[in-house]
Design a protein around this nucleic acid. Sequence first.
DNA 1: CACCTAACGCAAAATATTTGCTTTATGAGC
DNA 2: GCTCATAAAGCAAATATTTTGCGTTAGGTG
Lengths: 189, 189
Amino acid sequence: MAIKEAVRPGGRSARVQEAVHHAVRELQITKSREELSVPQIANKAGVTPSTIYRRWGNLAELLADVSLERLRPDDEPPQTGSLAGDLQAWGEQYLDEMTSLPGQCMLSDIMASAERERRERCYRYSETIMACLRERAVKRGEATPSVEDLMDGVIAPMTYRLLYDLDTATPARLSRWIAQTLPSADSPD
Amino acid sequence: MAIKEAVRPGGRSARVQEAVHHAVRELQITKSREELSVPQIANKAGVTPSTIYRRWGNLAELLADVSLERLRPDDEPPQTGSLAGDLQAWGEQYLDEMTSLPGQCMLSDIMASAERERRERCYRYSETIMACLRERAVKRGEATPSVEDLMDGVIAPMTYRLLYDLDTATPARLSRWIAQTLPSADSPD
DNA sequence: CACCTAACGCAAAATATTTGCTTTATGAGC
DNA sequence: GCTCATAAAGCAAATATTTTGCGTTAGGTG
C-alpha cells in the first residue's frame, strides 16, 4: 500500500499541501497577483509562513505549482470525426481558457517559475493531447502528421501567440495552422 | 533638441538608469539569479534602493528591463544569398545565444515580467528581423512566404522549444521548420 | 535667472524571509 | 498495537527587504 510519490506523502503533508493550494485558489478569486503574499496565504491556510517557504521556496514557485495542477487533462477532448475537427475543437476551448484573465495569470505564473521542469510538464501535457487526437485519426485510417509536426505546426504557434501577441491567438488563425499542418486534402484555398 | 522618450529623461535620470543597468550586468556575471537583490544592486550602482523600487517596482521588472535592452538588433543579420540560408544563419546564431546560460536567464527574466508589453516587444523584434530577411528575398525575386507565415513556421516553433523543451531547440530542427515553411523547391526529402 | 516639479536621497516603519530549535505525527520494525 | 526514528510543521527571534513620508537636488521652462 506504499504510495510512491514523495518522500513522506502521508496524511499531514498532503493535508497541508491541499490547504495551501486551496487557500491560493480562494485568494486568487478576490486578490490580484501583486496583492498576494506568502504570509497571507499561510494565514488563510492555517499554516505558518515558514512551512510554505521551506516547501515551495517562494511565492512564485507556489503559484506556479498551483497553476500547473490545473493543467491536468480532466476529461477526454471532444470527438468530431476528423483530426482537423478534433484539433479545432480542442484548440478553441484551450484558446478560450488561456486568453481569459485567469488563464493568462496561469500562464504567467508558470513562465515565472525558475524550475525548467515545470515548463517541460506543460510540453508533455500538450504532447499527450496531440498523441491522443492523432491516435484517434490513425484508428480511423486518416493520413496524419507526426506528433512532432503537430507540436510544431499547431501547438507552437498557438502557445507563442498566447504568450507574445495575445490579439492574434484566435480560432481563425488556429484553422490556418491546422490546415497548413495537415496533409493537404480538402482545403479550397 | 527635445528628446521625446520619457517624461523627464534628462541627465540625472539617464545617468541613474545606466548606473543601475550596468550594476545589474556586472553582478550577473558573478551572482546567480537568486543571489541578486535590489539593495545589493542599488549599492553597487550608488543609488538608494527606494530609487529602484520607485522606478522599476521590483527586482523581476528590473531584470526584465535589462534583458530586453540586450535584444536590440545591433548588427545586420548575415547574408547568404537565399532566404533559407539567411533564416538558417540567423536562426543558428540566435539558438546558440538563447540556449546558453545567460541566454536562458534572459528569456526567463523577460517571461517573468508582469508587463505584457515587454513580451510584445520581443515579438516585434523577431518580426522586424523576419521582415528584413524577407525583404531581401523579395528583392532577389525569390518566392517568399508572408512575415506572418515566417513567424508561425519558424519563430514560433523555435521560441516554443527554447522555452519548453530546450533539448529540441537545435539547428537540425531549424532546417526542418524552414524547409516546411518555404515554398517547396529544392529540398530533396 | 528664478521657478516648478520629476526624480532622488534618507531614514523610519512596515512586511516579508530566513533560521535555529522544539514539537508533532507518519511509517517502519517489532 | 507499541515504540522508535525522522520528515515535516510550528514557533519566535533575527535578518532582510520593501514601502513611505518628507526634505533635497537638478532638469526644463518661461
